[in-house]
Nucleic acid binder design. Structure first.
Length: 494
DNA sequence: ACTTGGTCTGTAACGTGGTG
DNA sequence: CACCACGTTACAGACCAAGT
């Protein structure tokens, strides 16, 4: 008699044994992970469930009410993998809903790293429904329906299709399946297939290793990675713009917008902050700009891209992938005197990156709103100081920003003064300034009206972020570290 | 499998302060 | 100066929603 049979016999549930074996519950391990939904399928009576539940609890050393394994969340691939489940056996949606009331609320979403898909493999065939769904979605594109509304509509439409209407989709689906089968057979003979198989094996082995090491030592000591030598992206761009830009770590200079080559109006000169380096784009082909400014709703800024964003040899794929979209400005900005408002620049290589950038733009807007609020508060203080002719009490004397302000003999512009006062690292004042100036310049170069000023959203954040961007986007040329009191650190950045 | 766009996690790559 | 431990950030991309 097997161990399982013994247990069932002991619990006086032997009459269920065949049913369990039939459904593949043929070992004690599988029984340990059984769920209420499984019991439903197996037709186990409630009282009998309790008996089994108690037995499971005893085996697992748990309390009775924890005895049954919770159904796996659909998303938790890692859990499924750990339990040896395959992707296809996750519970149905309806049972998801059923159990929603009984399972623990909102467990933290667990992310798992997936292997990169094989780029050479033939694409999975689309099913009849997917083909139909794509068509309907295409038809509904103009209408502003939510994702779920569309899905419901598609489902409904699919259900209402007559067999005759459904047939062409099914035929397409079948044809796609056939094609895929042939292509796959051919692909399996190629070297690429073997290479990818090796990669997969390596990937899974690595994952397994990670899981095991995590289990052994959940609190692994962190070893700081050695500083990577960024391939002097900054210096490359520096050379690119050096003819008209003042770029020097050694020679601090004030920031000044330059646009003389285009006959632009001289911009206000900001002073008062010990900005160490700033480069501004200086050469844009006027013909391109003119063309671009004619259609501003969704513009590919080729000329802008080539000159302002820059064309790093490694990022040529970005060409033609810069797009601007207006962001309507609803609230009046605190810096009324300035012509800096909102627009976003998207740079994308792939769909995911575009989405990422659009998220970042949203994040930027949030940051800028915060900045504005801070500016608004600071503006009041600034005006007070002007009246009294003394430095505000609220200034923290230990702050390097404030010390630089105090030593400043120029009459500072309100924005600069305030950003200096308010902003602490890692949102460096000079970074904000550089970005605003870039935006300012971009607006002029593209001859955009006030509300279309380009807000370069890429380099704000931290010095580390800017360095990373420096590898691919040359607007980081304008990045500076205003912390004059840290020259030693600057060395590491070059 | 597919669709869109928002949300959020995992992680690399730093910065910073402390210590030897 | 190197190293460590910890904090922070940006980034990539996983996940989610509904439907078959």
């Amino acid at each position: 008699m097997t161990e399982l049979a013994e247990i069932f016999d002991e619990l006086d549930l032997a009459h269920y044994l065949d049913r369990f074996l039939e459904q593949g519950f043929d070992t004690c391990d599988t029984i340990l992970d059984i769920t209420e939904a499984d019991f439903d399928v197996l037709g186990v009576k409630l009282g009998h469930r309790r008996k089994l539940q108690r037995k499971i609890a005893t085996t697992r050393g748990m309390s009775h009410n924890q005895a049954l394994a919770l159904p796996k969340r659909r998303s938790n691939v890692l859990d499924n993998k750990l339990l040896g489940e395959s992707k296809g056996v996750t519970a149905s949606r309806s049972s998801d809903k059923d159990r929603s009331s009984s399972i623990q609320p909102s467990r933290k979403r667990k992310y798992t790293k997936h292997p990169k898909p094989d780029p050479n493999a033939p694409a999975q065939p689309r099913s009849a429904y997917v083909i139909f769904s794509n068509k309907v979605r295409e038809d509904l594109k103009g209408e502003s329906l939510s994702f779920t509304e569309i899905a419901k509509l598609v489902g409904e439409k699919w259900q209402n299709l007559t067999p005759g209407e459904r047939k062409p989709y099914e035929q397409q689906g079948f044809a796609a399946k056939e094609t895929f089968r042939d292509e796959l057979a051919g692909y399996k003979m190629t070297k690429c297939f073997n290479t990818y198989a090796e990669y997969l094996q390596e990937f899974h082995a690595k994952q397994l290793h990670t899981q095991e090491s995590n289990r052994e030592s959940p609190k692994k000591t962190y070893k700081a990675p050695k500083l990577q030598n960024i391939p002097s992206a900054i210096s490359i761009k520096t050379a690119k713009f050096s003819s008209t830009s003042s770029l020097s770590h050694e020679a601090p200079s004030d920031v000044q917008v330059q646009g003389s080559s285009l006959g632009l109006k001289p911009e206000p000169r900001f002073s008062g902050e010990p900005v160490k380096q700033t480069a501004l784009p200086s050469a844009v082909t006027p013909s391109t700009q003119d063309k671009e400014t004619t259609d501003r709703s969704s513009t590919t800024l080729i000329g802008y891209y080539d000159t302002v964003i820059g064309a790093n040899p490694q990022t040529l794929a970005w060409r033609d992938c810069a797009r601007s979209t207006d962001i309507p400005v609803q609230n009046p900005r605190p810096w009324k005197g300035q012509r800096v408002t909102y627009c976003k620049v998207k740079l994308f290589r792939i769909h995911g990156a575009e989405r990422k950038l659009s998220n970042d733009v949203a994040h930027m807007k949030k940051s800028m709103d915060k900045l504005e609020r801070q500016l608004a508060v600071g503006m009041k203080d600034f005006e007070k100081r002007k009246r009294t002719g003394s430095v505000s009490k609220s200034i923290n004397p230990s702050s390097p920003w404030n010390s630089s302000m105090r030593s400043n003999t120029h009459t500072p512009s309100p924005i600069l003064q305030l950003s200096l006062r308010i902003h602490q690292p890692p949102l460096y004042p000079s970074a904000i300034l550089a970005i605003l100036l870039h935006a300012f310049t971009a607006q002029q170069l593209l001859n955009l009206p006030t509300r279309n000023t380009i807000l370069l959203c890429l380099a704000i954040g931290s010095a580390a972020g800017a360095r990373r961007w420096a590898g691919s986007v040359s607007l980081v040329v304008g990045w500076t570290d205003a912390r004059a009191d840290r020259p030693a650190k600057m060395k590491r950045w070059r």
